[in-house]
Every structure is written in structure tokens, then in C-alpha cells.
């Protein structure tokens, strides 16, 4: 294949993605520097940095950034650790392993909206929810999870959906581990921990990198779960950056400020992407 043809073949994907990125981005940047309020359409004109200042000095700004990072970080740790543990648990064959596997991965296919509604109503509702019923049956005071521990609850809900994803990948990867090597280590007297630490974990480095990367892509802009459950509250306790922009744009009707927020979100995504690439780049043959 000559290089001209190669360029022609590559062009469509690069061009559409460039358009998909640049057109909205430049519009967002433009909106972020003008007055654009849906309720006051007569107010127009260039305002410079003031939308950014407004967004940046919003008392929710730093909590939102912090919540975004806490949310992503906690979900990553929980899903990787739990996913690894469960994948190891079901690695050896036992009666009904096929069914166990199907049960374990099912939450991954549930829609995020359904997932959030399910937990919000049927599990975490302080009166009728199963958690409350369980607490009462042992004589404890039922907890209103979503208003008392909003961020924790969301971390829990998201982890329930994504741990199966980690299990699915680690499980498959464990199957390809060299059994003879493990057997040899065992004969040489290596304990279970040593086997895990020096053989299994190195074998899993690449799958772990993949799990981290894909999840980070999806979790940086988590929206549906928050929208459906807490609406970012109470206060700003469960507002992440994506939700803060949403509430500025669609609840505050201020496109200018929301666009400034969009620019912040894009910057944050790029900062994270930069570190991510350094972290993952070594483990991923691109």
C-alpha cells in the first residue's frame, strides 16, 4: 500500500473526529466569552473572562473538582481490588461456575439510569428500601444513604456496575496464565501470597492497565447516576464537574457560564489524559 492511499484511508476518521472536537469546542469557547443567558436574550456582547471568573468563584467549583477526583479514584480502587479478588475466587472450577459467571457480570449490562433508580428506590429508600428494612429488623436506626452519605452512595452504585467489568477481564486473563509455572513455584515451596505477588500480579499488569483506562474514560464524566439519585446534593456534596456544568446550563439557563465550565472540564480531562497516557503507555502497545 502506498502512503498516499494510506493517508486517504486514514483521513475520514481523523477529519470527523477533528470536526466533532473542534466545532463544538470553538462554539463553547466563543459562548464562554459572551453574555448568553436564555432568560435574558437581549443581553449580549463580549464579556472577556467574567464567565470564567463567575464559574471559578462559584462556591461549588472546588468541591466539584474534588468530588470528581474522589469519585473516579475510589471507584477505580474498589473495582480493581474487588474484581481481582472475585476473579481469583472463581478461577478454579467448581459446580455451577458457568452460572456464577453469568450472575456476576450481569450488572455491567444494566443501563446506568436503571441501575441508579433501582438502588435509589428499592435498596436505599429510608422507609421501604431493603437496607432500611434490614437495619430495622436488627433494631438499628435506618440510614437515609443518599442524603446522609451521598457521594459514598454514588461510589457504591457505580462500583456495583463496574466491578463486573473488572471481573470479566481479570477472569479471562487469569485463564491464560501459565499453569506449569505456578505448579513449579508451588513445588519450590512458594506460598499462595508469593505466587500471587510474583507470578499472577505481573501477568495481570496489562489487563489492570486496560481496566483503569477504560473506566477513567467513562467515570470522568459520570452524569446519569448523579442526575437520577441525588441531583448533586445535598448542597454540593455529590456534585461533580459534569453535573455542575449541567446545573449551570440547564437549571441556571446561563449558557455563557456553563460554557466556561465546559472549558474547565476539557482542561481537566486533558490533564488526566496526560498522566493516564504516561501511566498506561508503557503497558499498552499502541
Amino acid at each position: 500500500m502506498n502512503s498516499t492511499l494510506s493517508k486517504w484511508l486514514q483521513a475520514p476518521s481523523i477529519i470527523v473526529l477533528l470536526l466533532w472536537m473542534l466545532v463544538p469546542l470553538s462554539m463553547t469557547i466563543y459562548f464562554s466569552t459572551v453574555r448568553y443567558h436564555l432568560l435574558y436574550p437581549e443581553r449580549t456582547g463580549f464579556v472577556g473572562w467574567s464567565n470564567y471568573e463567575f464559574f471559578y468563584t462559584d462556591p461549588s467549583f472546588w468541591p466539584a473538582i474534588l468530588n470528581t477526583l474522589i469519585l473516579v479514584g475510589s471507584v477505580l480502587v474498589i473495582t480493581v481490588v474487588l474484581g481481582l479478588a472475585i476473579a481469583l475466587l472463581i478461577n478454579r472450577s467448581f459446580p455451577g461456575r458457568g452460572i456464577v459467571r453469568v450472575l456476576l457480570i450481569s450488572p455491567f449490562f444494566i443501563m446506568p439510569t436503571v441501575n441508579a433508580l433501582l438502588w435509589k428506590n428499592m435498596m436505599m429508600n429510608p422507609i421501604y428500601g431493603l437496607f432500611a428494612v434490614a437495619a430495622q429488623s436488627v433494631g438499628a436506626e435506618p440510614i437515609d444513604w443518599l442524603s446522609q452519605y451521598p457521594l459514598l452512595s454514588i461510589i457504591f452504585i457505580v462500583s456495583w456496575q463496574w466491578t463486573p467489568f473488572a471481573i470479566l477481564i481479570f477472569m479471562t486473563s487469569l485463564q491464560s496464565q501459565d499453569q506449569e509455572q505456578l505448579e513449579a513455584a508451588r513445588l519450590d515451596g512458594a506460598g499462595a501470597w508469593a505466587q500471587f505477588r510474583y507470578l499472577t500480579l505481573p501477568h495481570l499488569m496489562r489487563p489492570i492497565a486496560i481496566v483503569l483506562m477504560i473506566q477513567m474514560i467513562f467515570h470522568l464524566s459520570i452524569f446519569a447516576e448523579i442526575f437520577v439519585t441525588t441531583g448533586g446534593g445535598p448542597g454540593t456534596q455529590s456534585t461533580n464537574l459534569a453535573f455542575l456544568i449541567f446545573s449551570q446550563a440547564l437549571q441556571g439557563f446561563d449558557i455563557g457560564v456553563a460554557s466556561a465550565g465546559g472549558v474547565f472540564a476539557i482542561i481537566l480531562a486533558n490533564v488526566v489524559a496526560f498522566f493516564l497516557v504516561r501511566l498506561i503507555g508503557k503497558n499498552l502497545t499502541v
Binding site: W20, V23, M216, V277
Partner: peptide, 17 residues
């Protein structure tokens, strides 16, 4: 990698456009 990074942008940032 650039392509993948476009996936990380929060959709809400470009919803209005």
C-alpha cells in the same frame, strides 16, 4: 491517543453547541 482523549471530554461541556 488523541482520539481516545476526545472520549474523556464531558459531553455536557458541548451539549449546547
Amino acid at each position: 491517543l488523541w482520539m481516545l482523549s476526545t472520549k474523556m471530554l464531558p459531553a455536557v461541556g458541548v451539549l449546547m453547541p
